[in-house]
Design a protein around this nucleic acid. Sequence first.
DNA 1: TTGTATGCGTTATCAA
DNA 2: TTGATAACGCATACAA
Lengths: 351, 351
Amino acid sequence: MAKPTIANVAELAGVSQATVSRALRGATNVTEETRIKVQRAADQLNFTLSKSASALASGKTMRVILLVSGKLNEWFNSGVLQGVYEELAPVGYDVTPAFITDRSELDRFFSQLPKSRNADAIIISSFQLMPAMRDQLQAIDLPTVGVNVPAESGYFDASISIDNSSAMTMAVRLLRSLGHTNIAFCSDYIPADMVYNTSQRTQAFADAAQANATDGITFSLLTADAHDAPLSKSDLASQLTAKLLSLPERPTAVCVETDQVAIALVKELRKQQLNVPEDISVLGFDDAEIAQAADLSTIRQEPIELGRIAGRKVLQLLRNEPLEHPHELQDPLLVLRNTTSRIDSGAAPAE
Amino acid sequence: MAKPTIANVAELAGVSQATVSRALRGATNVTEETRIKVQRAADQLNFTLSKSASALASGKTMRVILLVSGKLNEWFNSGVLQGVYEELAPVGYDVTPAFITDRSELDRFFSQLPKSRNADAIIISSFQLMPAMRDQLQAIDLPTVGVNVPAESGYFDASISIDNSSAMTMAVRLLRSLGHTNIAFCSDYIPADMVYNTSQRTQAFADAAQANATDGITFSLLTADAHDAPLSKSDLASQLTAKLLSLPERPTAVCVETDQVAIALVKELRKQQLNVPEDISVLGFDDAEIAQAADLSTIRQEPIELGRIAGRKVLQLLRNEPLEHPHELQDPLLVLRNTTSRIDSGAAPAE
DNA sequence: TTGTATGCGTTATCAA
DNA sequence: TTGATAACGCATACAA
């Protein structure tokens, strides 16, 4: 038999289609005896329910879309996917990833997006909230949960984000307690049509700077020059290094938007005969695998955990369970390795 | 209107449902005029075709499953996903990832696997081909393409794999040309129920060793002791280092199954006061991001490209196009950085 | 080129 | 607890 249907199973088991359907889905109102009988028949025919037919009949697709900015193999995105999958797959949901890099793709995605037809929920990760997107988000009649989205957004039914503000406050405090009084924040240029950016971190740093601006402390914001094609990390690093060294007074500590850029920056600084961390401390952001390999001090965020939390929120929304805290912030963790030290310490750091 | 159906669009456009269906899918036999009229009506109603209904009616799910061993956020797996997605998404296919870590999950996956019901094709990445799996593969009546699967497998309709044999031959040649005469290969212990392993690489190294075994050259295979829970990379590295150092004659060069383990090994060796690469050369496998950060010499494989190729093969199979070379091997590339050098060179490597 | 009518494989309502 | 039957929303053979 090419493709057994529920009817074949029903016939073989000697019951009705409806009973087969109930038995196979684990409904309560089926005798244990019949259930076993049906299961046996299904196994014998190598039968599985068709998701398409189930979806059509029930109105539930058992699928949730994960929309990420940037590529699926980026550290953050793949981690979120893993986390979401861990929570949703065990309860029968498929997770269909989609990614988007520029504005036009975003528009296309949302216009084609099944307004409630092809998914039961949608998770949106790390998007800048542009006006156009807000409208489209509001037009969606699906449960929507955000990952690393701006705090002020009431555009999602739920969200989980890292606390950038807390992260940058911690970073500034750390560097100050190490004696640094001239601190910079480095970030890449953000094209206007970019769907994601780390501007939240930049802003959070600026806020933290302002809160600490009273005494003789200098804060600087360094951003790469505008460019069309994305810069390689090393080109970006050398540009940032040049800017860093051309400041009136060279900062003794820099926070960098991501580990990748931070590591490239460390390499470039060392190439310029500056010792890290003796001459200048560098603090990354993410604690990706490379941070450990490069012995980089950094601020940890945990994409897998963010994904899990997002997945759980989706499940709650799907079950119409009330969310106590629909919008959550996750506390970051400072991870100190070998690229940060006291300003006045000329000694080599301990191994 | 809550959920517009094709009937609503038909009514608004003043045509039949069939025409709407044809127009929206870009069928040829529709007047440009009607197509525009229909499109306008669809836009106005914010209508999108229901994938479930389409799938049920047409028998095509427009979905392909990507089954990987290990987690979705691993470097190789997420790269393959990205590559597959790049090829399939533009032509309308969803890619649904699934991952599996042990044998029991594998069995469950295959038993629940829609024998041709819930996907149009399946891509299987990096699985060891166990007997149980062979049977199940043969039972699948879907196009099946493998990524990094054993060469001898005629169990897939198509496949794309890295050429482990060529990789290890290159590695051995490189190390020999650098003057090394005592070369080891390091790998983790592989639990019996593991669905994936790097044993192909180990075997390829053994083959390469045999091909070079004539003169006074020593090859060793080092494997971690059996363990239940996965070892941390650093624990694994220290165990491998211990084995390495307890050999009658310490090898001057080691190939390691993955970059991760190689980097941990380098750290451990240096902790043991051995200079890398002056005293001992280390060669990784993958050329993941961390390899560059750690300045590791390694053998590059490109998961994204593998994914793209797999995606294209799926498309060809789905279109019933004949594949000239259903089973392909990809040539690896040697990437020399700072963990390999001549055996007789005591000088520090150039920056 | 367009319309009509049927079927795709389930779920859900209702009755038994 | 089980069975009969009507949706579910679309694709497609066939007719016009």
